[in-house]
Nucleic acid binder design. Structure first.
Length: 430
RNA sequence: UCCUCGGUAGCUCAAAGGAAGAGCAUCUGACUGUUAAUCAGGUGGUUGCAGGUUCGAGUCCUGCCCGAGGAGCCA
């Protein structure tokens, strides 16, 4: 008898199969037992009766707890009453383990309880759908970059110094020396980029900021491409193409999951590059018109970013941010004083920034000035400055926040549901 | 770090300062097409912690702990 996955069940209509999984839920009505079986790829309803099911298996069903692990053998049957179009007539059940009452019930739960049980919560339907979309998004982004000739070269997690200097870092004892946990692969990317031309890294960024918002984690994952001999325009085009490709691929391959999430995909399916662009000044003006006051020169706060992102139906870009609110390595815009060759890509429907990037300063003198101006330790950046001493070239890139793009595409409100095990202020369990 | 709200059964929540309750889960029973099944019954409590006010505190006061929403910071 074939062991099949529920996602492939339609190919086995009329055949006897074996499903290896867990009890998602069960119901009964007189002499009939309904068993919802999940196997990680989907959920199918098994129907057991005294007529079709062995005596031992049938009587055992009443003792099964939710999430008991079972191997079910039965006949795949097309049935219009099923949400997936197929059911399983249960012949026999083998119980692998069945012991404790499962704490998560089909009724509602609070956030704290669910996060304390995150290791179990990920078995639930909505979490299952979100994390499957996450996996698809990561695959899509990497495919896109590989197709464009980018090489994946990982950046280190242990670093000797602050990458951007601006944010609070986690520190660790590194054989008696103080080390910091990476907050971005950016600087190392610039080194590999000069060695390989087009590169990207994908890994966790760790930030000890005491942020307590729906769009922040202390550990978040970024895909960061970097290109040599490239300008702002090249980075923007790459970002647009990547987001467009990713959205359409998720729509094509993860329709089932988006349905589970009840995601309205109308806006997503109409997305096409190029995306609207506005310069920083224009964005500030627009935010003020929308009723969230802010001054020229300030960065967008959460309320500002939200109203702006709510006013768009498509992803869009803000370009040419002021020097003062961007990292030291951003290239100055020589045509407008105080501005940089930078861009953010924001998701619509109020989601906001998912990508930040731009051109990097490649003149060693300018870079040193920026480092001094921000009181960063020059010594720590010696290797980085070397990149400008030996064959420096214009280069550009960006970072894509995986959890944020997952939140947007899934239509999930809080970013904590977009990663298997979220790390947040005051939360490190499980 | 700041502001606001909250902490009562395993879970989600009620309870004018006057006898701690409901729904779900669990247990017992009924039901041959249920979809968060339904119906009947049962079990289940140191009301976050420590003090205080009061004849009497889940409820009021003080301190602490924990959580949520938001701000700032940021991707």
């Amino acid at each position: 008898m074939d062991w099949v996955y529920i996602e492939d069940i339609k190919r086995f209509a009329g055949k006897e199969v074996e499903i290896k999984g867990w009890v998602y839920n069960k119901r009964s009505s007189g002499g009939i037992r309904f068993l919802l079986i999940r196997d990680g790829t989907g959920i199918i309803q098994g129907v057991a009766t005294e007529k079709d099911t062995t005596h031992e298996s049938f009587s055992m069903i009443d003792d099964l707890k939710r999430e008991a692990s079972i191997i079910v053998r039965g006949l795949v049957r097309e049935d219009s009453r099923s949400p997936i179009g197929f059911e399983l007539t249960v012949k026999s059940i083998e119980v692998i383990q069945n012991q404790k009452d499962y704490p998560i019930t089909p009724k509602s739960h609070g956030v704290d309880f669910l996060l304390q049980n995150r290791h179990l919560w990920i078995r639930s339907k909505l979490q299952w759908a979100v994390l499957r979309v996450r996996a698809e998004i990561i695959r899509a982004v990497e495919n896109y970059l590989w197709d464009k000739g980018f090489l994946k070269l990982d950046a280190p997690i242990f670093t000797p110094s602050a990458c951007e200097g601006t944010t609070t870092l986690f520190s660790a004892d590194y054989f008696g020396e103080k080390a910091y946990l990476s907050q971005s692969g950016q600087l190392y990317n610039e080194a590999t980029c000069m060695a390989f031309g087009r590169v990207y890294c994908f890994g966790p960024s760790l930030r000890a900021e005491k942020s307590k918002t729906r769009r922040h984690l202390t550990e978040f994952w970024q895909v960061e491409p970097e290109m040599a001999y490239a300008y702002l325009e090249d980075a923007i085009k790459l970002a647009e193409g990547m987001v467009e490709y990713t959205v359409h691929r998720v729509l094509a391959n993860r329709k089932r999951e988006l349905d589970v999430l009840e995601r309205d995909t109308n806006l997503l399916s109409s997305i096409s590059a190029p995306f609207p662009r506005i310069r920083y000044e224009e964005a500030v003006k627009r935010v003020n018109e929308l009723g969230e006051l802010m001054k020229l020169g300030e960065d967008f706060g959460a309320p500002q970013e939200t109203v702006l992102a709510e006013s768009y139906d498509s992803p869009f870009m803000i370009t040419h941010f002021p020097e003062d609110i961007k990292a030291f390595y951003m290239k100055k815009d020589l045509s407008t004083s105080g501005r940089t060759l930078s861009f953010d890509l924001l998701a619509p429907e109020g989601y906001g920034e998912i990508i930040g990037g731009g051109e990097r300063e490649f003149d060693v003198g300018e870079l040193k000035k920026n480092i001094e101006k921000r009181n960063l330790p020059m010594e720590a950046f010696k290797w980085y400055l070397d990149l400008r001493e030996y064959g420096s070239v214009p280069h550009a890139g960006f970072g894509l926040g995986i959890e944020r793009i997952v939140a947007w595409i899934c239509g999930v409100k809080h970013i904590r549901e977009t990663i298997p095990f979220p790390r947040m202020l005051g939360r490190i369990y499980p």
